[in-house]
Lab assay of single mutants.
Amino acid sequence: VSSEIYQWVRDELKRAGISQAVFARVAFNRTQGLLSEILRKEEDPKTASQSLLVNLRAMQNFLQLPEAERDRIYQ
């Protein structure tokens, strides 16, 4: 997982004009609270716990989908 993931998520929230709650639900089936905590802490993926890595990997995989497909999912 790239250490850029945190910025990618922030950029996607702005680009798509969606809330953290929507992104958390569709990208990795978690709550806004968890996403907020992940973004606030910005732990280095190289030293992250296994559970954090699973979530970061799910977010990264979601962000690799084509933009149009992500936008459809947000609706």
Rank of each mutant, 00 (worst) to 15 (best):
V54L: 11
Q7T: 15
I18H: 00
I18M: 05
W8G: 15
S2W: 07
I5D: 03
A21Q: 11
S19N: 13
K14L: 14
V9T: 08
A68P: 14
N61Q: 12
F28H: 04
S51G: 12
L56M: 03
F23P: 00
Y6P: 03
S49M: 02
S49Q: 11
Y74R: 03
V54K: 12
S49K: 10
F28Y: 05
G33F: 09
W8A: 15
E4L: 11
Y74F: 04
S3P: 12
Q50I: 10
E67T: 14
I38R: 00
S2Y: 07
I5R: 00
R25P: 05
Y74A: 01
N61L: 08
R10T: 09
F23C: 04
L63H: 04
Q32P: 12
R15T: 04
V54C: 13
V26I: 07
K14G: 14
Y6R: 03
G17N: 15
K14V: 14
I38L: 08
D11K: 12
P45D: 00
L52G: 05
N55E: 07
I73R: 13
S36F: 07
R72K: 13
Q20S: 09
R25T: 10
R30I: 05
S2V: 06
K46G: 14
F62W: 05
P45Q: 02
T47H: 14
V54F: 11
G33P: 11
I38F: 03
L53H: 07
K41T: 11
V22C: 12
P45E: 02
V9C: 09
N55F: 08
L56K: 00
E69N: 09
I73T: 09
V26E: 03
E67C: 11
E12H: 06
K41H: 12
A24W: 02
S49P: 13
R30M: 09
A27L: 08
R57Q: 14
E43Y: 04
S2A: 08
A58Y: 06
T47Q: 14
L65I: 08
A16S: 14
S3Q: 09
L65K: 15
R15P: 01
L53S: 09
R10C: 07
S2P: 11
D11R: 10
E12S: 02
L13R: 02
S36Q: 14
K14W: 05
V1S: 05
S2D: 08
A21C: 06
E12D: 08
V54S: 13
D44E: 06
S51P: 11
D44M: 06
D44W: 00
K14T: 09
N61I: 07
R15L: 00
V22R: 08
F28V: 04
Q20Y: 08
I38G: 03
R30Q: 07
E12Y: 00
M59L: 09
Q32W: 09
E69R: 08
T31D: 12
E42P: 00
A27W: 04
D44R: 04
I5K: 04
S2K: 13
Q60H: 09
Y6G: 01
K14I: 11
D44N: 13
Y74E: 05
D71N: 08
G17F: 05
T31R: 07
R70D: 01
R25S: 13
R40S: 14
S19Y: 01
T47G: 10
S2Q: 10
N55W: 05
F62M: 03
V22W: 04
S36D: 12
E4W: 07
Q7M: 15
V9I: 15
D71W: 01
D71T: 05
S3F: 09
E42Y: 00
Q7G: 15
D11C: 07
R15H: 04
Y74V: 00
A27R: 00
Q32V: 07
E4Y: 14
F23I: 02
R10A: 09
S36E: 14
T47P: 03
L35Y: 03
S19A: 06
E4D: 15
S3M: 12
E4C: 15
R30G: 14
L39W: 02
S36V: 08
V9Y: 00
L35T: 04
E37M: 06
G33Y: 10
Q20D: 07
N55A: 07
I18T: 06
A24Q: 14
N55P: 06
F23W: 05
P45W: 02
F28E: 01
L34R: 14
F62I: 05
F62P: 02
L56S: 03
G33T: 11
S49F: 03
A24R: 02
Q50V: 10
K14R: 08
L65S: 06
W8L: 15
V26R: 03
E43I: 13
I38T: 04
S36N: 13
R40Q: 15
S2F: 06
D44P: 10
E42G: 09
Q32I: 03
L65R: 15
A68Q: 12
L39I: 05
G33I: 06
L39N: 00
A21P: 11
K46F: 08
A21S: 13
F28R: 05
L53I: 10
V26Q: 03
R25Q: 15
R72D: 12
A68V: 14
Q20M: 08
S3E: 14
V22D: 11
L39K: 02
Q60V: 06
L53K: 07
D71M: 04
K41C: 07
D11Y: 11
E43M: 08
D71G: 04
L56D: 00
V54T: 11
R70A: 04
D44A: 07
F62H: 05
A16I: 03
K14M: 07
R70G: 02
Q50K: 12
V26P: 02
Y6F: 05
Q50M: 13
R15Q: 02
L39F: 02
V26D: 00
G17C: 15
S3Y: 10
R15D: 00
L35V: 03
Q64E: 14
I73P: 00
L56W: 00
Y6M: 04
I73H: 09
L13H: 00
A58R: 11
D71R: 05
S19E: 06
S19D: 15
M59E: 00
Q64S: 12
V26A: 09
K41I: 10
L52S: 09
A48V: 07
L53C: 06
S2L: 04
V22M: 10
V26L: 09
Q50N: 14
R10W: 15
V22Q: 15
F62G: 01
V54P: 08
A48F: 03
L63K: 04
E12L: 04
R10E: 08
E4M: 15
F28G: 10
K41A: 11
I38V: 06
A58V: 06
R30C: 10
